[in-house]
Every structure is written in C-alpha cells, then in structure tokens.
Simulated assay, not measured.
Amino acid sequence: MTLQWSAVAFFLYAEVAVNLILCIPFISARRWRLLFSWRLWNWLSPYWNKCFFTMIMVLIVLFLDAVREVQKYSGPEPTQDANVNPTLYDHIHMKLFRAQRNLYLSGFSLFLWLITRRVVTLLNQVAAASENSAALQEQVERAITEARRHQDDNRRLKETVVEEEKSMSAKNHQLKLEVEKLAGDLQTAEKDLHQSHAEVEAMKRQSKGLAQEYDRLLREHHQLQNLQCSNNKKEQ
C-alpha cells in the first residue's frame, strides 16, 4: 500500500473511531457541546470549513482515481493479455484488488467524513434544543409560579375587599343610626328652643306688664303725695 492510501486508511480508521465515540449513549449532547466550546475549537473554527472542503476535494479526487483504476483493470484488454500470460493474469487481479480496495477506502472515508460533520452538527443542535427546552421549561415553571402567586394575591385582595365592604357596611349602618339619633336630638333641641323662645316672650310680656303696672302705681303714688301736700296746706 502506497503512502497516500495508507494515509486514507488511517483517516478512515480515525473516522470510525470518532463516530463510535460520538455515538456513545451515556455521553449527552450537552457534554459534547461543552467539549466543542473549548478555546481550542474556537481557535480552529475559522479553519474548519476550509479543512472540511479540502478533505472532501482530496477524497473525491482519490475516489475518482480509484474508480479509474478499477475500470482500467476490469476492462476487456487486460483480460485478453492475462489469458496469454498466467503471471500477468495474477498481476492484473492483484491490481484490480488494490484498486477496489482503494475505491472502498476513499468512498467510505468520504462517506464517514460527511457523516462525522452531520453528527457533530446534530449534536450541537440537540444540545442547543435541550438548553432552549430547559430554559423554556424554567420560564414556564416561573410563569406558573407567578400566576399562582397572582391568584393568591387576587384571592387575598378579594377577601380583603369583602372584609372592608362588610366593615364599611357596618360603619355605614352605625353612622346611619348615629345620624338618626342626631336628627332626633336636633328635633328635640328645636322643640326646646321654640319652648324657650315662647317662655322668653311670655317673660317679656310679663315684664312689660309689670313695668306698666309699676309706672301706674308710681303715678298714683305721686298723685297721693300731691293730694296729701295740698291737704296739709289747707289745714294750716
């Protein structure tokens, strides 16, 4: 096996090993995402696409070369020459075997190279989807907790409003009773006030009559005094 096909075989074995490791069931996609987020991969990420497409081109060239070799040694001309010389027949079959081997090596290497990239992409997508689903689940749980807290707050608020309404109705009833009591007291006070005014008016009239009687008596007293004085003068 030449050096290039030895390198292709080693690359194929490495791809098989990498794919087997990536398919290990007890290593989750999140762990692979953490591994792919190392600084080394971040440093290599600008060159990753170039390396990927370069390897694809190399493997395609090797695959086409292997196809050409297979067609070359499986055609009718080498077979006719091999029928003449038995040693050449074995040599041609050996070349055909090597060409077919190289075809399988390059083909499977190309196929596994595409599969490896797809597996890595799917692992990253699964890890991202898992993280998003975990974040969404956390948001949903947070929203449910918040909704339950709001429901409890609304229930307590309703209970508080009902209690306040009951207390306000009791206060309003008490105030109504007090207003009715005050209205009764006011009516009583108005009656007392009217009675007081009537008594004052009666006292005024009585005092006026007493004043008139006093004036009359005073005049009569003056008249008696004047009459007594005139009698005394006559007697003298």
Rank of each mutant, 00 (worst) to 15 (best):
M168H: 14
K166H: 05
K181Q: 09
K166W: 06
Q195D: 08
V161I: 15
T160P: 14
Q187R: 11
L182M: 10
L182V: 08
D185E: 06
E190W: 04
V162R: 04
V179C: 04
L193Q: 04
L157E: 11
R155E: 03
L193C: 04
T188R: 05
S169E: 05
S196E: 03
K171C: 08
T160E: 14
G184A: 12
Q195L: 12
L182W: 00
D153R: 10
H197Y: 09
Q174M: 14
L157S: 12
G184E: 09
D153P: 02
A189D: 07
T160V: 13
S169H: 15
K166C: 02
E165A: 15
L177R: 08
S196Q: 11
E159S: 08
L186T: 06
Q187F: 12
E159Q: 14
M168A: 12
E180W: 01
E178V: 02
D192Q: 15
S196P: 01
M168G: 15
N154T: 05
M168W: 15
H194V: 09
V162Q: 08
H173F: 15
Q187S: 07
K158Y: 08
E199C: 01
G184K: 07
L182G: 00
E199S: 03
D192P: 03
V179A: 11
E180R: 00
V179N: 10
H197P: 01
E164R: 13
E164G: 09
T160M: 14
K191P: 00
T188E: 08
Q195Y: 06
K191T: 11
E190K: 12
K166Q: 06
H197Q: 13
E190A: 10
L182P: 00
E178S: 05
L182I: 02
L193A: 10
K191L: 12
E165Y: 03
K171A: 08
E164M: 11
Q187T: 15
Q174E: 06
